[in-house]
Design a protein around this nucleic acid. Structure first.
Lengths: 144, 144
DNA sequence: TGTATTCATACTAATTCGATAGGATATAAT
DNA sequence: ATTATATCCTATCGAATTAGTATGAATACA
């Protein structure tokens, strides 16, 4: 019942881009250094975000990545479901679930459904802008 | 981000025992048949529940298993954390988490913490007795 | 004694995870 | 034009996890 590094790194990556949202492209190497994540692995992850149109890439020297939209337009849920696949705790509560042979009689389904809804309620109501705000608040306290 | 068969089967197993909570031992073979789960695999799972004192076992012919306590004394959370380990979505929010090098600056922690709390809030507030009630309600409607 | 049952442990095929590796392609700076 | 700096693309790989099977011993009822 764990969120993989793919999803966790993707969130940190997007947060890093949001924190450096100046209009200038940010190179993956810089992000990898700041986040202490293998840049080669981050390449694969940002490629997913790129193909989904979550970031804009600029190739060549001085290139890098930028957020395509404003931080408040990305929920944590968008980023996690894109990189992790669904966050459903069991396959039968996924949106496109193949119907289970026991679905009529299965009350454990209710448990999974409630867990699923609880998770989505959290991740769909936190945006990158929230994370940026929390981060800046944290940094401020650290300086004092 | 999935709950494994171990946890899911454990919950169905405990629910099955709760539904047949007559004072007579229920054999694993019967449960396996009803739940359409390999009995050999169920053996391994119920062994965990047995060692934790969640069920009582009776060996030999006509033996089987019984719930040790009343259905309302088992939460879904107890059963899942016993069989799955923690339900924390990332290791840094586990109860006995080894401190992360970035913990001071890491705001994604807040996300994981909220997810974790949301999950626990669901599973700690559903008992086997609730599942039994829902199941009986479902069966009733099915007959009508 | 025979049969039904739990108990214990070892094994395994398949899949997923978390990367690493090597090069192709594009572009800014020199 | 050349070089350095980036992104882009695909293949590979070791380790761990998952979801069981398999085998047999121990126990107890009939």
């Amino acid at each position: 019942m764990k969120i993989s590094t793919k999803g966790r790194y993707a969130l940190r990556l997007m947060l890093d881009l949001a924190l450096h949202n100046t209009g200038e492209a940010v190179s993956l190497k810089d992000i990898a250094k700041r986040q202490e994540i293998s840049d080669k692995y981050l390449e694969q992850i940002i490629s997913i975000l790129n193909k989904a149109g979550y970031v804009r890439s600029i190739r060549g020297a001085q290139g890098g990545y930028l957020l395509k939209r404003e931080p408040e337009e990305y929920t944590v849920g968008m980023i996690l479901t894109l990189t992790e696949g669904t966050l459903a705790p069991v396959s039968c509560v996924e949106d496109d679930a193949v119907s289970c042979s026991k679905e009529d009689g299965c009350v454990t389904y209710i448990v999974w459904k409630r867990i699923s809804e609880a998770i989505n309620d959290v991740v769909d109501n936190i945006t990158l802008a929230d994370l940026v705000e929390w981060q800046q608040e944290k940094n401020k306290n650290y300086i004092i």
